[in-house]
Amino acid sequence: MGFSPDIGIDLGTASVLVFVKGKGIVLQEPSVVAIDKYTNNVLAVGREARRMLGRTPGNIVAIRPLKDGVISDYEITEKMLKYFIQKTIGKKLFFKPKIIVCVPSGVTEVEKRAVIDATNEAGARTTYLIEEPIAAAIGAGLDITQPVGHMIVDIGGGTTDVAVISLGGIVVSNSIKTAGDKFDEAIIRYMRKTHNIMIGERTAEELKINIGGAIKRDEAVTMHVRGRNLVSGLPVNIEITSEEIMDALEENIASIADAIHSVLERTPPEMASDIADQGIIMTGGGALLYGLDEYVQKRMGIPVTVAEDAISCVAKGTGKALNSIHVLAQARGQRSRQDR
């Protein structure tokens, strides 16, 4: 079987999702690569590599090749993409697939070129790009072809993309580097400052998912955390409450609300009234933070809904966009290097 299907890739800072035409989402793995420092060989990718984060001997490093929604390590990104593409469609290919990759709305031309080149090198026949808010809107089931303003807030690992979309294009947008990863960093900082304890990224993420929140819960929840005491240097076990994590995240959540506010301020009046009617749609893993939708709703005075399947919205939208690649190429003027 040499024929290869078209593929949609949500190349995220925290995870990579791959959508295959006709099959749906076939792969969802963390964007982590473990390599041997001395030989530069890739030892593990995805889940296996993530298990190694913070737990590797000196010669093995677990790297996250994307930072803040863009490629920070080109070679490793290419190796990671190659691994995921081969895992998805097998190695024996006569025809290379057409691949559509999702990028944050604020990326520069240089960053776009890096994504296209890395994907072509990893085995694409042609690479197209789609902006995250548009993919998220399509994945959330919105009809973006109509002359109606929709507001999408996509909170991923590296970036939060806020955009108003109408007639298939972005009218106003803002992309900030405050998202899931910054939440984790804020929790690590808080633990160090308040409890004198050093915790790792994974523990911070568990705290965020299990007891984190943007608003006060009716009943506080707690979680036991293991870390290293910075004074004694010994491992300790302490109990953390949901209110503490809420305090730790307060600043980051406010900056996401500010980004939404600044986009609303720049939205043309007719579209602003569409948004007031329809509400704001939130997608991405960060949208699942407890009470975040309620917090934004209170601050903006506009109804907020978290999309069904928030984490896979962007990948689904990227996949659906495979059906209209020609439109993408013309509309965005993003025809990549065509291998004629």
Rank of each mutant, 00 (worst) to 15 (best):
A287Q: 03
M300C: 09
M282L: 15
L292H: 06
T283H: 07
E308N: 11
K298G: 13
P303I: 01
P303Y: 05
D309W: 04
L289I: 15
G301R: 06
I302H: 09
P303N: 12
L288V: 09
V306S: 03
I302K: 14
L289G: 11
A310F: 01
Q297H: 05
G286Q: 07
Q297W: 00
A310H: 02
D309I: 01
P303K: 14
V306C: 04
V304Q: 10
G301C: 06
V304G: 11
I281P: 08
R299V: 09
A307L: 01
V306E: 05
Y295D: 14
K298C: 00
G286C: 06
V296P: 02
C313H: 00
A287R: 04
Q297P: 09
G301T: 13
G284D: 12
T283V: 05
G286D: 06
V304A: 11
R299H: 13
I281W: 12
A287I: 04
Y295C: 01
I302S: 12
R299Y: 07
A307D: 07
G284N: 11
D309Y: 14
V306I: 15
E308H: 03
S312C: 03
G291M: 10
M282R: 02
L292S: 07
I311S: 12
M300P: 01
Q297L: 00
V296Q: 03
